[in-house]
């Protein structure tokens, strides 16, 4: 199942760890097969095993912040407001100059919960309802995590653009 491999890659950011995580997930699924409820979504079940395995094996012990720094976004708009009639126009140009790797790195830097829903929705194309089943939370939570996840990503991308010198030059 490609969702699992892709998710493993996006969570661990490296092929060796992704392989280990995938293998561990399948072995656990085999050992705990009697825990699988027949008739429920097996992809969701495997996904949850992978998520728990990831948390046990890889998650940094530091609790990641889960708030979006809206001031950063406001500042961003203020910075570029004077330079362009439409801030989105300029933003598109700025982000267009970023490398694919930088975009992927920005995604991988998001806190787990946000990264997960963004991957499942925007890369895997799952519906909110499917995602709710995968991560075991209400649809409303999926929606708000998605919104905040995308906002966070916007801030990250803005930081990259700034550090690359695309913005803020006099």
């Amino acid at each position: 199942m490609d969702i699992l491999y892709n998710y493993a890659m996006r969570m661990t950011s490296n092929p060796d760890d992704a392989h280990d995580l995938l293998q561990e997930t399948y072995l656990k699924a085999y050992r705990f097969w009697d825990k699988y409820e027949k008739g429920t979504n097996i992809r969701a079940w495997l996904f949850r095993i992978m998520k728990n395995t990831y948390i046990n094996l890889y998650r940094k012990t530091v609790k990641e912040p889960d708030t979006v720094d809206y001031d950063e976004i406001k500042n961003f708009y203020n910075t570029i407001k004077d330079e362009s009639a439409d801030p989105n126009d300029l933003q598109e140009k700025l982000f267009g100059q970023l490398l694919d790797d930088e975009v992927a790195k920005a995604l991988e830097s998001l806190p787990e919960d946000f990264r997960t829903v963004v991957i499942l929705c925007d890369i895997e194309g799952l519906t909110y309802e499917e995602i709710a089943d995968f991560v075991e939370c209400p649809v409303g939570t999926v929606r708000s995590r998605l919104h905040r996840g995308r906002k966070l990503l916007q801030v990250k991308l803005f930081e990259y653009a700034k550090s690359r010198g695309f913005i803020g030059k006099d």
Binding site: F95, L98, D100, V103, I123, K151, L153
Partner: peptide, 20 residues
């Protein structure tokens, strides 16, 4: 527009990892 742009950026700039 801004959120739509971010979504499309994720969709088009982050490749889906294929299992070797």
């Amino acid at each position: 527009t801004s959120e739509e742009m971010i979504k499309s950026l994720i969709q088009h700039r982050i490749p889906r990892a294929k299992m070797p």
